[in-house]
């Protein structure tokens, strides 16, 4: 499985695992390649086109996306040719027009010397993603492939493509996990907690109930999320008390309990 190969980025040699995306190798070694739609825990998607590299030695020479480029012995790429810079400039201009409100995109474009766009700014009225979404699909893929919830997806196509819940109605399958917000490269998604309710404002104001910590009384996690993944870690200790505690109280409780075990007084906490 983990066959090692040598690859070359800008003529410098790096070790890689055979078959892994070249973008991984670059990231691991802090070689700068811009990218919006890649996340190591998901299958490569090749949608944003920003991670272009020029293959000098390899099965197929020429420009390709490095997130979908599998490492093989002797693979050699350049990351900063004039041709790449030209393409990148157009891509950043398109992203500036697609997500005119996104500071993340502005910063990123500026880092590559792009400060303005020739294209019309796509300010959308009442856009639940605040005219910040670049349609990279990371939230959709995380929600579907990792969380297995399938709350959101692409809607429509082309210029009118949006991301939201079916029929733009609040969802009854959302776990309220916030994974979409975590992966979003442009910080387009809005989620608010109001005491015992988490409001997924971007996803048609879906409301999710939060669970209260039995010790400190803080609301700490969505009920549904807890029901789905909670048991994975609470029961490692086979201690039911852990089940309804927030992470902080759980930590304190576990630390105390283990100290007492070491002191031979575990039964004080057994109950």
């Amino acid at each position: 499985m983990s066959d090692k190969v040598n690859v070359y980025i800008n003529s410098k040699r790096y070790q890689a695992i055979k078959g892994e995306p070249l973008l991984n190798v670059a990231r691991r070694n802090r070689v700068d390649i811009p990218a919006l739609c890649y996340e190591e825990s998901l299958k490569p998607y090749g949608a944003c086109r920003l991670c272009l590299v020029d293959v000098k030695e390899g099965a197929k020479k020429g420009l390709t996306t490095s997130c979908t480029l599998a490492c093989s012995e002797g693979l050699s790429v350049a990351t900063n040719t004039d041709e790449i810079k030209r393409h990148r400039k157009v891509l950043f201009e398109l992203y500036l027009s697609q997500a005119p409100n996104s500071e993340k995109i502005k910063d990123m474009a500026a880092r590559y010397g792009v400060f303005s766009t020739r294209f019309e700014l796509k300010h959308q009225e009442n856009d639940k993603l605040n005219s910040k979404c670049v349609l990279c699909g990371l939230c959709v893929r995380t929600c579907n492939e990792i969380m297995g919830a399938g709350v959101i997806n692409f809607i429509g196509r082309g210029h009118n493509t949006k991301i939201n819940t079916p029929y733009f109605e609040s969802s009854d399958v959302c776990l309220g996990c916030r994974a979409c917000l975590e992966v979003c490269p442009t910080k387009a998604i809005t989620i608010e907690d109001r005491s015992n309710i988490r409001i997924m404002a971007s996803w048609s104001y879906t409301e999710v109930e939060l669970k209260k910590c039995t010790v400190c009384g803080k609301y700490y996690a969505p009920e549904k999320l807890d029901a789905k993944v909670g048991s994975l870690f609470y029961y490692r200790d086979k201690d039911a008390k852990l089940k309804n505690m927030c992470p902080e109280c759980r930590k304190k409780y576990a630390a105390k309990k283990h100290t007492l075990i070491m002191e031979g007084e575990a039964e004080k906490y057994a109950k």
Binding site: N144, A149, G150, V151, I152, N153, F154, I155, G156, R157, T165, P166, Y167, S171, V173
Partner: peptide, 25 residues
């Protein structure tokens, strides 16, 4: 109809959002 798409989703185990995505595509 919405009901039809929902029903299909439940029956074949493909998420409602995925089916809606395809129907709007």
């Amino acid at each position: 109809s919405k009901e039809a798409l929902k029903y299909v989703s439940e029956k074949i185990g493909v998420s409602f959002s995925q089916i809606y995505s395809i129907a709007t595509f």
